[in-house]
Design a protein around this nucleic acid. Structure first.
Length: 474
DNA sequence: ATGTCC
């Protein structure tokens, strides 16, 4: 396939359709943000996704795009459900419903400063993290797990882990519809029973941050943010349960490709029609795993609240919770007709414009909050969905890797990175030196540049910039 | 991302 990029604007490239692509590719980036490592397959993946049955409009890539499993991370693709459109687990990713939650503290960075050390020690001691580690809430068995898989953060709140207002500030009110726990295998359930309320590893974290700059006072006010304010950002997903769901359903779909007559250029794009037994089974299991991820962030919220109450006599209000690894059934206008679509967002965030009916009433005038975590040494952003976003109202989800984990380990020492961050006033509570090195700020694109590109491309607008004060690393 | 290979 020809993967020549044609500039369509300062922040947008077109990849013209050629067989076997069914639609063109659209890449939102500057030249500098495009993948440049030798042998990088990100753009080839954008073209591969464009071959999926039922795909409409284009195969999109966000400015933080990088190489992923099947789909690029930062990839967005929608398929027409009534036209044989498929759902692909690779279009969601292994960490189903991985996402970000932002909490606003009722304290500013100056009064918190003398209490930061104690706060970070407390967070470091009470936030479960690391590979294979257990969480804050041990479930009693499959029956209880099924309740959580159906109601997500709502079940956590119902069980006393949070307040009802939290749910008003969660995408889908904390629970993706259509969860079918019967499609979540026993191995996935077993892996998940002990992990609710745990960060995991990799790029996951809980950060104490401060609002460094406000770009849109109206939206910032509606989100409850002001300059100097302390925030907590939580980035985590669905742990072993989501991973197992993805593995199990990829296997099934890989085996059913022939039966559905689907030809794909890469087996990692294994998929099945949304309207088919394996398609429905995956979507039901995926929604269940998504709800696990949302409950997970709800439990970690409570851990942060306890630490803030004890160490800082401060409270935390939920600003918003977004998932950036999902496939959702949404209605979008395609060629002038409202169509039910399966929208895959893999490392991409829903970014509804102002006035959309799915927004909470008090945010309707502004738009959907878009949370863009950067790195532990740089910044993170709160953005808001912009009107006229033709990528099915999607936006960037982070900075995006430029070094592989292997490259990062080769170039960075965890202990040295910790010293460097601490000397800049950023408290670090790592889970492992190796994990810390893999997530070095230099391993990522410049989040300020990514955000400028997302803005320039018309995907979302910046509301506030947050800087790290302390990081509890997964 | 992930009991970093059942």
């Amino acid at each position: 396939m020809d993967i020549t990029l044609v500039p369509e604007g300062p922040y947008r490239f077109r990849m013209d359709r050629c067989d076997p692509m069914r639609v063109p590719g659209v890449v939102f980036a500057t030249r500098d943000l495009l993948p440049r490592s030798a042998g990088d397959k990100t753009l080839e993946q954008v073209a591969n996704v464009a071959t999926l049955p039922g795909i409409v409009r284009a195969s999109f890539a966000m400015p933080d795009m990088h190489w992923g499993y099947g789909f690029p991370i930062g990839g967005v693709a929608a398929t027409d459900i009534d036209a044989g459109g498929v759902v692909s687990p690779g279009g969601v990713g292994f960490d189903i419903s991985c996402g970000v939650r932002l909490l606003a503290a009722d304290i500013d960075r100056e009064p918190l400063a003398p209490r930061m050390r104690r706060l970070m020690d407390l967070l470091g001691d009470t936030v479960p993290r690391g590979v294979g580690r257990g969480g804050l809430w041990k479930l009693s068995g499959r029956a209880q797990m099924e309740k959580l898989l159906v109601a997500g953060a709502g079940y956590a709140v119902e069980q006393g882990h949070g307040v009802p207002r939290d749910l008003e500030r969660c995408e889908d009110h904390g629970a993706l519809e259509g969860a079918d726990p019967s499609q979540v295998g026993q191995r996935a359930v077993d892996r998940g029973l002990q992990q609710v309320g745990s960060l995991g590893s990799g790029n996951h974290f809980l950060e104490v941050q401060a609002v460094d700059r406000v770009y849109d006072a109206g939206a910032a006010g509606a989100f409850g943010l002001h300059t100097g304010q302390v925030c907590v950002m939580i980035h985590c997903g669905s742990r072993g349960l989501g991973h197992q769901v993805c593995s199990d359903h990829v296997r099934v779909m890989d085996q059913s490709l022939r039966a559905f007559g689907i030809r794909i250029p890469d087996r990692q794009l294994a998929c099945a029609p949304v309207v088919s037994a394996p398609g429905r089974a995956y979507l039901g299991a995926m929604a269940a795993a998504a709800n696990y991820g949302r409950a997970n962030r709800q439990l970690l919220t409570q851990a942060a609240r306890r630490a803030f109450a004890t160490a800082a006599q401060a409270g935390l209000d939920l600003v918003y919770d977004v998932s950036h690894n999902t496939a959702k059934i949404e209605t979008h206008d395609v060629d002038g007709v409202a169509r039910p679509l399966c929208v895959h967002r893999k490392g991409a965030t829903l970014a509804l414009p102002s006035g959309h009916p799915d927004l909470p009433a008090d945010l309707a005038a502004f738009g959907h909050p878009v949370l863009v975590p950067g790195t532990m040494g740089t910044a993170s952003y709160v953005m808001v969905g912009a009107a006229g976003n033709d990528a099915f109202s999607s936006a960037a989800h982070g900075a995006g890797r430029v070094w592989s984990r292997h490259q990062a380990l080769h170039r960075v020492r965890g202990e040295q990175l910790r010293d460097e961050l601490e000397s800049r006033g950023i408290s670090v509570r790592p889970s492992s030196w190796r994990g810390l090195a893999e997530e070095a700020p230099d391993a990522y694109k410049d989040v300020d540049v990514v955000v400028r590109a997302a803005e320039g491309a018309g995907l979302a607008r910046p509301v506030a910039r947050l800087v790290p004060l302390g990081v509890v690393k997964g």
